[in-house]
């Protein structure tokens, strides 16, 4: 994983993130799946020279999963830091991906870390850890309507510098697809145009839009020798729907390009 993480900025996010980091402020990134949030955070971590601890949140995630727990070893029980605690001690970035998936009581441990106090109380060991100056908390979520009900508590979101991400502009996305997959520009252009057609179907016909990630997958499959039609079906149609009619219509759409 030492390979440098390319990231093509869409706007001023690099500057904003850097300033937030310098000022020790936590950051919230909103945006649909696969639009480059994770990539951006990894890229920024490299830029700032800080380790990054990524946690993919889910609804069984407990505070202990973040903070740490006692384990049993040869010499009895010992304490092991969770990813959050490690980042707090070492001065790294703790990135909580899809934070709305976590239950609300779990995210409460973030509160004292994400305001001026910058401390992490570890109840179980009785410790009160003061955050390293380079510690940074970053959370992300996808504000699609299936998440609206879950949402993020206002008291939580009030503590963050927030940025909103979206899929890149077509020209940029073409560059990204080329870079990440090695297909030629013309093919990338077709893929991106198809992707944008599919994005128009979001909410009305499809729950999720075709992400940059999926476009890259399709491009890689094409690069590896699969025919463009098959690659698009496998990477851009099947992952987005299970409905036979929807799939047939998307197949037609693919044929409009390849």
């Amino acid at each position: 994983m030492s390979k440098e993480r390319h990231y093509l900025p869409k706007g001023r996010e690099i500057e904003i993130f850097t300033l937030a980091a310098e000022n020790r402020l936590p950051v919230l990134i909103k945006g649909p799946t696969g639009c480059g949030k994770t990539r951006f955070v990894e890229h920024m971590a490299e830029r700032l020279g800080r380790p990054v601890y990524t946690v993919a949140c889910h609804d069984d995630l407990t505070a202990a999963d973040l903070v740490g727990r006692h384990l049993i070893g040869a010499e009895g029980t010992y304490w092991q830091d969770g990813p959050l605690t490690r980042a707090v001690r070492e001065g790294g970035i703790c990135y909580l991906d899809e934070v709305v998936e976590a239950r609300k009581d779990t995210t409460v441990v973030l509160h004292p870390l994400s305001d001026h106090r910058r401390v992490l109380p570890v109840e179980r060991t009785g410790e009160m850890i003061e955050a390293h100056p380079d510690f940074m908390l970053v959370i992300s979520y996808n504000p699609g309507y299936q998440n609206l009900l879950k949402g993020l508590k206002p008291s939580t979101r009030q503590r963050f510098v927030a940025m909103s991400f979206d899929y890149p502009d077509p020209e940029q996305e073409v560059v990204i697809v080329c870079q990440e997959s090695g297909v030629d520009k013309q093919q990338a252009q077709q893929l991106v145009a198809l992707g944008n057609d599919l994005r128009r179907l979001k909410d009305h016909d499809l729950e999720e839009a075709a992400s940059t990630r999926l476009l890259i997958y399709a491009a890689r499959m094409i690069g590896a020798g699969l025919s463009p039609r098959e690659a698009c079906l496998a990477c851009l149609a099947q992952p987005l729907s299970d409905e036979a009619e929807t799939l047939s219509a998307i197949e037609r759409l693919i044929q409009a390009y390849f």
Binding site: D197, H204, D205, E245, A249, I250, L253, A256
Partner: peptide
């Protein structure tokens, strides 16, 4: 159904 989707996808 298919045509409706096709129409929307094409703008």
């Amino acid at each position: 159904t298919q045509l409706g989707l096709y129409f929307r996808a094409l703008g």
